[in-house]
Design a protein around this nucleic acid. Structure first.
Length: 642
RNA sequence: GCCCACGUAGCUCAGUUGGUAGAGCGCAUCCUUGGUAAGGAUGAGGUCACCGGUUCAACUCCGGUCGUGGGCUCCA
């Protein structure tokens, strides 16, 4: 038997006998102690199965522990182990569906009459630990599809039967670990001993194949790592995210509330939340003015006919609230602001010289969301979009998109977001508008992104039926992504509302319309801001910038004077002049995440100063009230950018 | 909407096998006047989400309604 030499991606090579598999090559590799432990390998772009027979010209790239791919393989394998453990503990009456790896973990869907509870988790985890300790190998086999269907029919595994039927291939592969043989493409770990750390996290209902008309399965979520430290780190991150939950902080910091008697998905802004929102709105309006936008206000309801013309009644009615009758005419609550802006456009005959027109509005809209979809500030039924519509000529489109991106990134950056995932969505199967227009618009979006130097991913066919769009997801301090900004080209509404302008050639043309929201909605954006800053907002938009606290009652009168002076100077200041110990007052201010604590005792009163404590515990030397007001003003100017 | 869990004082939560409720924080009053993360005492707060049923008796058991949370988008 002759040997073959398999090249490795890094230029090395390994020699194995003819007929060897990937596993043999990996084993040979592992004997070289210099290399890190490998859990799988890739041939080209495909993850190679261990049983794949190698040829001499194969280029193998080993997947090292620590890579994202290795984590996927680990988690997918752990889901098999969990399924095996579940059936060991609860019997084969538990039917299995699918068990993929997902971001940060894995799940497996089961059909079982009783529900899984936390005590069950302990039993399952205990059994999993035993299985891991046994270092059970994962072995691959293949069967003709017909035989596989028979096998699973005999075992009454109807989900597996359906999966194979839908695959429509001649043969299917299986992986066996212990007693559990699962339909699976692989790849898997060499054996279970690679699973060093795992944890089951929660159980939730999930429809078979995501279809709400089909069986509801029980989905057990878990996560796994190659190292116990990584698991601990991940669990700590989950804890940290919990602490930052905007619903929890919103209550603790008295920012907003949602009341049963008022209704789900309807936000009540408390004074501090309202202040926070006002500061954001003011900044937004100022920035739009500086970027040559005009501000609009429009009503919350409109005649139903408007929504017929716009087409919303045809394609959006399930998200709209039912109509109300006023003077025998039907009116409906607005789910979008666009038709109103168009209404303003259409009140005058427009010339090409007027374009582009840039109109913005903080427009409050109402949309029906299913109760199960509601979530704090992030998904609500009444919300305020930071909306704008730009009406322009085709030759202006690219510049306008560029300007929007410019303003968009500037605003996001001002709030501390400078990492983004950008998606460009192209023409879907069903669409309106000419192919030429679509191509031109998509090209304009692309070149604006390129000019701005922004990397982006293409979401093919994910555009809205009326035009292509750019979506921007921002990343918060914990690295989580949030969809906020959207920029959409629209060929539909200008047509439906018969919008026009007179061109230089004295004939009528149709303007292009751009919809865009940068923060998405104030509700969502503030929700994300709360989590991003964990409630400790920068000075320039912190609802409270400073709190005055006296040491004894003797300085209460001085505290009042300082309070009035700072308030006049425009500082957002509170006073805590209660008969309490300083320690106690500092603790409360600290919990409330107040940026500056102004401490006044006899010394400060005599010198006409305040002692400044920062929320990080640091102290500044005493300063006069005007000095402190200037410090705040400077910091605000720096944060706002001017 | 669907599945599971949950709903007790303003907040965070206890409440054993059915016998109409507790703690801490907060709040009020008093004592204390204390220099950088909780001083002490006393007291007031509850139709146990709502509606109905079982029972001599329901916060507790059963049914319904409303609301909240985790999911239902990642597809061998």
């Amino acid at each position: 038997m002759t040997d073959i030499t398999v090249s490795l991606i890094d230029g090395e090579s390994v020699t194995v006998p003819v007929g060897s598999s990937v596993q043999d090559a990996l084993t040979a590799l592992l004997s070289n102690k210099q290399r890190k432990i490998t859990v799988a390998a890739k041939i080209g772009d495909d993850i190679a199965d261990f049983t794949t027979i190698l040829s001499a010209d194969t280029i193998l790239s080993p997947i090292q522990i620590g890579s994202d791919e290795a984590l996927d393989i680990l988690r997918h394998s752990t889901s098999h182990i969990m399924a095996l453990a579940v059936r060991d503990v609860f019997g084969k009456d538990v039917k299995v569906a699918i068990g993929p790896s997902i971001e940060n973990g894995f799940y497996y869907d089961f059909l079982r009459d009783e529900t899984f509870n936390p005590e069950d988790f302990e039993k399952i985890e205990a059994r999993m630990t035993e299985l891991v300790r046994e270092a059970l190998p994962f072995t691959r086999t293949e069967l003709p599809s017909a035989d596989a269907i028979k096998k699973f029919s005999d075992e009454q595994e109807k989900y597996k039967v359906e999966l194979i039927q839908d695959l429509d291939t001649d043969t299917v592969s299986f992986y066996q670990v212990g007693e559990f043989t699962d339909l699976c493409r692989g790849p898997h770990l060499p054996n279970t001993s690679f699973i060093k750390a795992f944890k089951l996290l929660r159980v939730a209902g999930a429809y078979w194949r995501g279809d709400e008309k089909r069986d509801v399965l029980q989905r057990i979520y878990g996560t796994a790592f190659y190292d116990k430290k990584d698991l601990k780190k991940h669990l700590n991150a989950l804890e940290e995210a919990k602490k930052r939950d905007h619903r929890k902080l919103g209550k603790e910091l008295e920012l907003f509330t949602i009341a049963d008697e008022i209704g789900p998905g309807l936000i009540l802004w408390q004074p501090k939340g309202a202040q926070l929102r006002r500061l954001i709105e003011d900044f937004w309006k100022d920035e739009h003015y500086r970027h040559d936008y005009e501000l609009l206000y429009t009503p919350h309801i409109a005649r139903q006919d408007l929504w017929k013309t716009s087409g919303h009644l045809d394609f959006y009615s399930e998200n709209m609230y039912s109509s109300m009758e006023i003077d025998e005419v039907q009116y409906q609550l607005k789910p979008m602001n666009c038709p109103f802006h168009i209404g303003i456009y259409n009140t005058l005959k427009r010339s090409y010289k007027e374009l582009p027109i840039r109109w913005c509005e903080l427009g409050t809209v109402y949309r029906y969301e299913r109760t199960g979809a509601l979530h704090g500030l992030l998904r609500v039924r009444g919300f305020t979009q930071d909306d704008a519509h730009i009406f322009c000529r085709p030759d202006q489109l690219e510049d306008e998109i560029f300007n929007i991106l410019d303003l968009n990134l500037h605003i996001l950056k001002s709030f501390g977001f400078d990492e983004y995932d950008i998606y460009l969505s192209t023409r879907p199967e069903k669409y309106v508008g000419s192919d030429t227009n679509w191509e031109r618009a998509t090209g304009a979006l692309k070149s604006a992104l390129d000019k701005k130097g922004l990397g982006y991913m293409i979401d093919p066919g994910e555009g809205v039926f009326y035009g292509p769009k750019i979506d921007i997801k921002i990343k918060d301090q914990l690295g989580r992504s949030w969809q906020c900004s959207t920029i959409q080209v629209d060929f539909n509404l200008p047509e439906r509302f018969k919008m026009g302008y007179t061109g230089a050639d004295n004939t009528e043309h149709q303007p292009i319309m751009i919809h865009r929201a940068l923060m998405g909605s104030l509700e969502r954006f503030i929700g994300v801001l709360i989590e991003h800053y964990a409630g400790a907002f920068p000075i320039w938009f912190a609802p409270v910038q400073a709190r005055i606290m006296n040491i004894t009652d003797d300085q209460a009168d001085y505290g009042e004077i300082v309070y009035k002076e700072l308030r006049k100077a425009g500082v957002r200041v509170e006073r805590d002049l209660r008969n309490e110990k300083l320690n106690y007052k500092i603790r409360e201010a600290q919990v409330a995440k107040i940026p500056y604590m102004l401490i006044i005792g006899d010394k400060e009163k005599a010198d006409n100063t305040v002692t400044v404590r920062l929320r990080n515990g640091e102290n500044l030397s005493p300063m006069t009230v005007p000095e402190f007001a200037k410090l705040i003003a400077d910091e605000v100017r720096e944060g706002r950018g001017y």
